[in-house]
Computed example of a mutant assay.
Amino acid sequence: MIKVHHLNNSRSQRILWLLEELGIDYEIVNYERDPVTRLAPATLKAVHPLGKSPVITDGDLVVAESGAIIEYIVHKYGNGRLLPATDLPTYIKYLQWMHFSEGSAMLPLLLALYVGKLGDAGAPLKPRITSEIDNHLRYLEAELGCNDYLLGAELTAADIQVSFVVEVADARNLLDDYVNLSRYAERIHSRPAYIRALERGGPYRLGA
Results as ranks from 00 to 15, higher is better:
residue 4 V to G: 00
residue 5 H to S: 04
residue 7 L to K: 01
residue 9 N to P: 03
residue 10 S to A: 14
residue 11 R to Q: 07
residue 13 Q to D: 09
residue 15 I to V: 15
residue 17 W to D: 00
residue 17 W to T: 02
residue 18 L to W: 01
residue 18 L to G: 01
residue 25 D to M: 12
residue 26 Y to L: 07
residue 28 I to Y: 08
residue 30 N to M: 10
residue 31 Y to D: 03
residue 33 R to N: 06
residue 36 V to N: 12
residue 36 V to P: 04
residue 44 L to R: 02
residue 45 K to D: 09
residue 48 H to K: 04
residue 50 L to P: 03
residue 52 K to F: 08
residue 56 I to G: 00
residue 59 G to Q: 06
residue 62 V to H: 05
residue 63 V to E: 09
residue 65 E to F: 09
residue 67 G to A: 14
residue 69 I to A: 01
residue 73 I to G: 00
residue 74 V to S: 01
residue 79 N to H: 10
residue 84 P to C: 14
residue 86 T to V: 05
residue 88 L to Y: 05
residue 92 I to G: 13
residue 93 K to T: 11
residue 95 L to C: 15
residue 96 Q to V: 10
residue 96 Q to S: 15
residue 98 M to A: 15
residue 98 M to E: 05
residue 101 S to T: 09
residue 101 S to L: 08
residue 104 S to G: 10
residue 108 P to M: 13
residue 109 L to M: 10
residue 110 L to D: 11
residue 113 L to G: 02
residue 115 V to E: 02
residue 116 G to R: 02
residue 117 K to G: 05
residue 118 L to W: 07
residue 119 G to I: 10
residue 121 A to H: 05
residue 121 A to T: 05
residue 123 A to L: 10
residue 123 A to H: 06
residue 127 P to A: 15
residue 129 I to F: 03
residue 129 I to D: 00
residue 132 E to H: 03
residue 133 I to K: 00
residue 136 H to L: 09
residue 142 A to P: 04
residue 144 L to A: 14
residue 146 C to N: 12
residue 151 L to Y: 03
residue 152 G to L: 10
residue 152 G to F: 07
residue 154 E to L: 07
residue 155 L to A: 13
residue 156 T to H: 02
residue 159 D to F: 08
residue 166 V to Y: 01
residue 166 V to W: 00
residue 167 E to C: 08
residue 167 E to T: 04
residue 170 D to R: 04
residue 172 R to M: 15
residue 178 Y to S: 01
residue 180 N to S: 14
residue 181 L to G: 00
residue 182 S to M: 09
residue 182 S to Q: 09
residue 184 Y to N: 01
residue 190 S to I: 11
residue 193 A to P: 05
residue 194 Y to V: 15
residue 194 Y to I: 14
residue 199 E to H: 07
residue 201 G to A: 15
